[in-house]
Nucleic acid binder design. Structure first.
Ligand SMILES: [Mn+2]
Ligand SMILES: [Mn+2]
Ligand SMILES: [Mn+2]
Ligand SMILES: [Mn+2]
Lengths: 244, 244
DNA sequence: GTATAAACTTTGTCATGCCTAAGTTTTGTT
DNA sequence: AACAAAACTTAGGCATGACAAAGTTTATAC
């Protein structure tokens, strides 16, 4: 059995090597809250055990074996978050810390029971895909909110950061998974983005917007991109979504 | 924060000192699956931290502080078992092993959410009382099944051992929490006890019967004790222990 | 191209929690 | 009382996983 530490290191390397090609010692250390010396030691251990390859002074990369472990842990983590949200009604900002510990303690049997109980779900409460038992994930065509064009409409499908403060901030703004949005204005120089969310108009920083993933509606034929700050009728979206 | 090991040691000492006055090194070691030398070391550590008193060559006794920890852990353990049974529908033989690990990983916040979700329950799926936040437990007036008299009727309210084999055996016999039983026969020399359970008649060993707690019905005025279904039933076991 | 800074590794140390082997105390015979 | 067995403690060691300090490599600045 792998220790909780090892599982967390593997998860961290996986997450980091997903943007960049490789996970640097420094970033792993930051993510896990340990010193770089400890990371070097663990990378060597992981390499010795066949979970990762160590390129000295160049960081770590997971082997196939390591990736399998990582996806297994992500599956557990996300199922646990969804399970806690579904049963105890925890809000999305309360989930991560508990899941981070429980992922190492919940038995495989329990995980599979949760999976069935939840109806074989595809996504967790943050909109992230839940890897299947064999490690495949349903990908989703979505855009970063900060990259939408003026007038675009869409629906929030996922949020990256797991910082509770950030998630509560989004909740305050009425932004949650499924929220419909319309881009009203985009200030230049990485300035704030103004959105229509439900009946409210909000401004959100570039930083935050980049952490929000949106599925953009296909433009309706004949629909004009609305001019910014202009009063408009109801937004036209071809697709009939359940409305609120 | 206390380590999982320490929490398990404290729980073990609590359980052991509840029968006997004191928890011996040997029995703690057996219960936790470690060697006696390890137990001695840990007892000294617990004593140094104020959770227990060590009487060398005489075992360990928890301090008030230690007892508080023990009751807290028992509360967690039992709430987790009930929560898993209620949500995922795990049967009583599947609960203990998972709870034994989860009790160390679930946050206080989650425990309290479970407590509310479950409607502030008093008993776990094995019928054991769940300590309240302040450490008090609802006691229950019940008798060991092996001490019932011939003709007694009652309801199963709790089962001690947590061995899955044993619990599945009881399930096969139709014995679960709430099952109504009637004592049909008691063989002498610690022999089997014959019971009516629902519409079935079963025989259960003395050993097993001692692990089953029953709340005995008050005898109805005018009700006859049914005759044991033995023809030559006169070598009757001595009836009535502590009754009435 | 050299100097400095940043990233990284190596070495040695420490706390936990377990074990084996050896020694001590208690208990149970006879 | 005397001896053996059982229960227990002590001493020494090992694995894990963290850290600090010191040394090395790579990147950046001038
Ligand atoms: Mn999470
Ligand atoms: Mn974790
Ligand atoms: Mn249990
Ligand atoms: Mn435990």
């Amino acid at each position: 059995m792998l220790s909780a530490s090892i599982e967390d290191y593997i998860k961290a390397i996986y997450a980091l090597q997903t943007d960049r090609e490789t996970a640097s010692t420094k970033r792993i250390a930051e993510r896990l809250g340990v010193k770089m010396a400890s990371v070097t030691g663990m990378i060597k251990h992981l390499a010795a055990e066949g979970y990762a390859k160590h390129k000295p002074y160049r960081g770590a990369v997971l082997t196939e074996r390591g990736k399998r472990v990582a996806l297994g842990m992500i599956r557990r983590h996300r199922l646990i978050e969804l399970f806690l949200a579904s049963t105890l009604g925890l809000s999305w900002d309360e989930l991560h810390a508990d899941a981070e510990l429980l992922e190492h303690a919940v038995s495989d049997r329990l995980i599979e029971r949760m999976f069935e109980y939840l109806g074989r779900p595809q996504f967790d409460p943050h909109g992230s895909p839940i890897p299947s038992r064999d490690g495949s994930m349903t990908p989703r065509h979505s855009s970063r909110l900060d990259e939408l064009a003026l007038g675009d409409t869409g629906k929030v499908v996922a949020v990256s950061g797991r910082d509770p403060e950030f998630l509560r901030y989004l909740t305050d703004l009425n932004l949650r998974i499924g929220s419909k949005i319309l881009v009203r204005d985009r200030a230049p120089f990485n300035g704030p983005i103004t959105l229509r969310v439900g009946s409210r108009t909000i401004a959100i920083g570039h930083e935050a917007a980049a952490r929000i993933r949106v599925s953009v509606d296909a433009p309706t034929k004949g629909a004009r991109k609305p001019k910014p700050e202009v009063k408009r009728g109801s937004r036209t979206s071809r697709r009939a979504h359940k409305r609120r």
